[in-house]
Amino acid sequence: MDWNTIFVTTVKASIGLETVVYALAAIGVNIQFGYAGLLNFGQAAFLGVAAYGLAVIVSTFGLSFWLGIVVGLAATVVLAFLLGIPTLRLRADYLAIVTIAAAEIVRLVFRSVAFKDVFGGSDGRQNFSGDFYAMNPYAPGSYGIGPIKFDERTTWVLTVGWILIALSCVLVYLLMKSPWGRVLKAIREDEDAVRSLGKNVFSYKMQALVLGGVIGCLGGFIFGLGQASIQPDLFGTEFTFYAYTIVILGGAARVFSPVVGAAIFWVLLVFVGNTLSEAVGAGVFGSAITVTQVGSVRFILVGLGLMLLLIFRPQGIFGDKREIALDAR
């Protein structure tokens, strides 16, 4: 077994593209679900419309990269309003139902044959990241410490991605320390109480939905640019559920929990996956597991790990046990 490769890929996973994308998506979910108590099960759609906004403007219509970013952001905000206006006045469950359905609608529209000319069907879109890499300040070569190295393109994407994560964390920190964040947390606890104290609950919920969507959509841009291509099936419902897993793993309503949660989630997945495939390759399990089954088995093992975490540390890594104890009362 090649422990060196396992070690290198695992360390790379902790700061790699997936971690960045999922961290941004999870920061958004943390604002919506962790702080405001909104069950947005359509976070994947927010990343999807942003990534497609950018890709379609650049590759389908041949317009500029920055216009693509603006369109992606605008599409995210429009989606948030479309989902929020009819549902945020209702009970929390309705938002969950509408968002999960909307996310699937968005994905199916992207991969539909009717719009193949615009969205590229199930092949998605390519050739939209040229302008982004043209801005790359890193000279060709590889960057990193010791054996952990990324090429100049990945380094550039990760640099931008981690700057966005840092900015998002600062934003969340400032907001949640402020009276604005206090209203949000209060809405999570009891909407009617907040209404009776003269706060416009609908407006705050909408602000949280839009903000969480916009931060998530940054992850959509990074996803598309990092891979230099997008496919509709990247934005399936499991994407959203991973983001929720990450938030709960880190501990809901904590500033750094989505970031650390994303790193741990991907480190676990990559470490378990690589160790398994190396072990299968070395014939450790005999014929019990084949190479093709490794992908599923790693999810089984990671799922088991997450269940153990929730049993023994239900508040997540950064959570406060006292808060969980209150729920039991």
């Binding site: 209203v183 907040v194 009776s196 104290l197 706060k199």
Partner: peptide, 17 residues
């Protein structure tokens, strides 16, 4: 309707207009 996961002081501050 006490807002359970907010402190007593935060509950109070929330009331101000």
């Amino acid at each position: 309707k006490a807002l359970s996961k907010l402190t007593v002081m935060e509950n109070m501050r929330l009331g101000a207009q």
